[in-house]
Amino acid sequence: MAKKKSGGWLESIKTILYAALIAIGIRTVAFEPFNIPSGSMIPTLLVGDYLFVSKYSYGYSRHSIPFSPSLFEGRIWARMPERGDVAVFKLPRDTRQDYIKRIVGLPGDRIQVIRGVLHVNGEPARREPLGDFVAEGDGPRMTVRLFREFLPGGNNHLIVEQSDDGPLDNTPEFVVPAGHVFAMGDNRDNSLDSRVPGAVGVIPLDNLVGRAEFIFFSVDGSARWWQVWGWPFAIRYARIFSAVR
């Protein structure tokens, strides 16, 4: 009997280890889950969204592996992001932090914001006004302006603007260095991004973790963990399995 019990424990431990290794493998080479803690990507992503990021989209760097071990330099099977991708990356000044923003500038691009309008290589990105939008989930509720922004090359997405004369609405021209990208939040007046060189700045390609693909769960924060009766009403059902664009 003692041998059987010992063997049973050993098999259980092996099963747990195998499951952990499979999970780490999937998380490293395929998909990794992330949650959205701030409103910098409103309206595309809301506080309380949970999404999957594809790890294979840009190839693999050491940041593709949990805890970013220094096993190798550069990227394996590297692929350049597309302008307009929503990507997760390691913050250049502190690679322990994950950020998620939209890539608007590729290596060699000239990026500038003038009176709230993004300019790529001297060309203004057209903004189509879509009316008012109520932003919530990251501080007090506020009504902002909703636009569809068209990037050079054809990709388009939604952004929100509180005004066109805020601190980040008029910037110097940034030239994106080789091996880097330039990223901005869709909540243009409330995003710490590449427009702030001392805080984020341009992002090395090696720091890219992956591309945001789809939302698999979303809650609006109206029910706390102990308010079990409120859980079903806190879920944003319409956002589940929606693609990130």
Rank of each mutant, 00 (worst) to 15 (best):
F34W: 01
F217Y: 02
F34Q: 08
P140Q: 12
D220C: 00
V202N: 09
A30N: 12
R83C: 09
A19R: 05
G7C: 10
S40A: 07
I203V: 13
F214A: 04
V175C: 10
T15Q: 14
E173Y: 00
A243W: 10
H63R: 12
G230A: 06
S242H: 11
K3A: 15
R110S: 12
I24Q: 13
M80D: 12
D193I: 08
P66Y: 11
G84C: 04
G25Q: 09
I215M: 09
R148V: 05
E161F: 07
K3F: 11
V53E: 12
F31P: 04
G210T: 09
P197F: 11
S61L: 04
V104E: 03
R83P: 09
P107Y: 00
E128F: 15
V219I: 14
S54V: 02
G48D: 10
S57M: 08
S191Q: 02
I16V: 13
P37W: 00
S57L: 02
G74I: 06
F133D: 03
A135W: 08
Y18P: 11
A212Q: 05
S6F: 15
Y56D: 05
P129S: 13
V104S: 03
S38V: 06
I22M: 12
N155R: 10
D189G: 08
N35K: 07
S70P: 03
S54N: 10
A238H: 15
I76R: 10
I36R: 04
Y237N: 12
G139N: 00
E82Q: 13
V244Q: 07
V200G: 03
I111T: 04
D186K: 05
F147W: 06
S12L: 13
P129D: 02
N187D: 06
T15L: 15
M1P: 07
D132K: 03
P177K: 00
D109A: 10
K90N: 07
D98H: 02
T95V: 11
F52G: 12
V104L: 06
L146H: 03
P107H: 09
Y56I: 07
P172R: 08
W9R: 14
V176I: 04
L71Q: 10
R102A: 07
I235H: 01
L118Y: 04
V209F: 01
A135M: 12
W226S: 07
V160C: 06
I203N: 06
V196D: 15
D220V: 01
R96I: 06
L205C: 08
H157A: 05
H63V: 11
F133T: 02
K14C: 15
M80I: 06
I159C: 10
G122H: 04
G8M: 08
Y18D: 13
